[in-house]
Design a binder for these strands. Sequence first.
DNA 1: TAGACGTGGCA
DNA 2: TTGCCAAGTCT
Length: 400
Amino acid sequence: MFSQLVESFALSKLLTESPAKLKRFREKLLAWYAERGRDLPWRRTCDPYAIWISEIMLQQTTVAAVIPYFERFLDRFPTVQQLAAAEEADVLKLWEGLGYYSRARNLHAAAQDIATNHAGSFPRTAEELQSLKGIGRYTAGAIASFAFDERAPIVEANTQRLYCRLLGERGDPKSTGVQKTLWQFAETILPKNDCGLFNQALMELGGTVCTIESPSCGDCPASRYCVAARHDLQQQIPAAKRRSKPTPLVDVTVAVRKDDRYLIRQRGLGEWWTGLWDFPRLTLDETLLTRITLPSVPARSSRDQPNLFTREPVCEELRSTIEQFICDQTGVSCRLRGAELEVRHAVTRYKIRLFCCLADYQSGRLSSDQPLKWVRVNALSELAFSQPGRRFADRLIEIS
DNA sequence: TAGACGTGGCA
DNA sequence: TTGCCAAGTCT
């Protein structure tokens, strides 16, 4: 035990306080990155705008998911001025399916900020960058180092895991104390020059070698400096975080038909999928659920494999609840039809049973105090199963 | 400071 | 099927 403590201490000192070891570590890391680093679209450019877009898209999102969105976005908005001049709705539509839509709204707002308050030229320092909406400490450091080679440290999921293992840090990585240690470490190991390249190399190592489940320590240029590898603590470090169980919910969407069109509404502030278009949608409250019988599930269902139609009618209380909801939310009265659909979705912390009802317009005018539209749609059954963010708008015709 | 915010892939 | 996770930020 004592010898382990001595060794942990000695090793962590080696990396951060021995200039020779640190130099060797940097050389080995950069050599490894030159040989093994992936060729990704945003690594081929020094354009701060493109790097910014990629960094925002990559927040909590996999590389594979981002690539097509990144290409489309830059194709549509090649410069910060063009993004600033866009309608927010167009930016959101381009973002649809990526999730975390506030990223898109912040991106748009920040572009306008740059266009009007920074004379259209991109802020060059991490400090300035962090004053923009949606750019926190990590993203500011990433853009400043990748695009301008500022000596700015970075800590995000990949590097956090890497640093924790290198240091043998067993505490909760999210705790204030450990965060302070990690940011300090990130700054200490940064070389004088080529910081952008160095940061990319750190992230790449964390992302492809120093993985969560089975890190490839045999291929790691830093394993000889790694406390976790020395003591076989890769599974214990970093400390696992706990997640709460998803909350079960029952949602109902209603496709109200008038001639060949259906009623949709734009979701407002404080709701999920803010700014995206959706069928009117309500969450059934628990007391109602105790009184009614929901249509049974006809077949296998999962997040992405919706059930086929079921023809079970809803009970009278549910019918009147839904019809009243439509009237309150949209101003029109409607009559539910006999066909109801069901599907199950999991949305992050919620496990949602989703019923999709068809209804016929009866009478009334659309409320003028919120965005509502009658639109033609493609493939109603697919659309009814969709959530706003899951390519919903792609199935609408004549949305604007 | 913990919880909110989305979606898709993988075991 | 379920749970966990992915280049975080904001409140």
